[in-house]
């Protein structure tokens, strides 16, 4: 843990890091460019973690910007990435948080956050559509951008286009 303590945090982010470490002492917190805090969480810990950062008064990350995923095929994992922020008129109370959850590539499952931030609904549907990540407890997990009867999840790195090849016309 000593390496974390050596990090000099910007003043307004120190309470955030403290509050996170108070509840989750094993958490690795990193400072990224533009004052983003990056946190890696286990999938089974995630429901507790998200509830905590939303509801604990010292954290209160009320604004979910984005949910997406990355397929790290060489490391054999799918990573779901959440971007969160706090809104407020006081500049010192602002903070930005990246949460990353590693999932196995076969049968990736993680708890949905729609009940915490309703905006996650479409984002999670998109991640399900493109990567096949199943969000447990999602009210309406269907494909959103691709057709309903589409086979496969296009943004996975090992995705193969199933459509018949078109012959190229050359002149």
């Amino acid at each position: 843990m000593s390496e974390h303590e050596a990090t000099t945090w910007p003043e307004h982010l120190q309470p955030v890091a403290d509050a996170l470490r108070e509840r989750f002492p094993q958490l690795s917190i990193e400072l990224k460019p533009d004052n983003w805090l990056e946190v890696k969480v286990d999938a089974d810990q995630s429901p507790e973690f998200f509830r905590y950062i939303k509801e604990y008064p010292g954290l209160a990350f009320d604004y979910l910007l984005d949910v997406t995923a990355v397929d790290y095929i060489n490391e054999g994992k799918l990573q779901v990435v959440y971007h969160l922020a706090r809104l407020g008129t006081d500049a010192k109370k602002r903070g930005k948080l990246v949460v990353k959850i590693d999932l196995p590539r076969d049968n990736p499952r993680v708890r949905s956050v729609v009940d915490i931030w309703p905006t996650a609904n479409f984002h999670e549907r998109e991640v399900y559509d493109m990567f096949g990540v199943v969000f447990e407890g999602h009210p309406d997990l269907r494909r959103i951008l691709m057709r309903e009867d589409w086979v496969g999840h296009p943004l996975r790195k090992d995705y193969v286009d199933q459509r018949p090849k078109r012959t190229r016309v050359t002149r």
């Binding site: 997406t68 397929d71 609904n121 479409f122 984002h123 998109e126």
Partner: peptide
């Protein structure tokens, strides 16, 4: 780019 995700405001507003 290994992955390029575009966060669209209107996508969110549709909800």
């Amino acid at each position: 780019p290994y992955r390029c995700h575009y966060r669209s405001p209107c996508f969110v507003h549709l909800q």
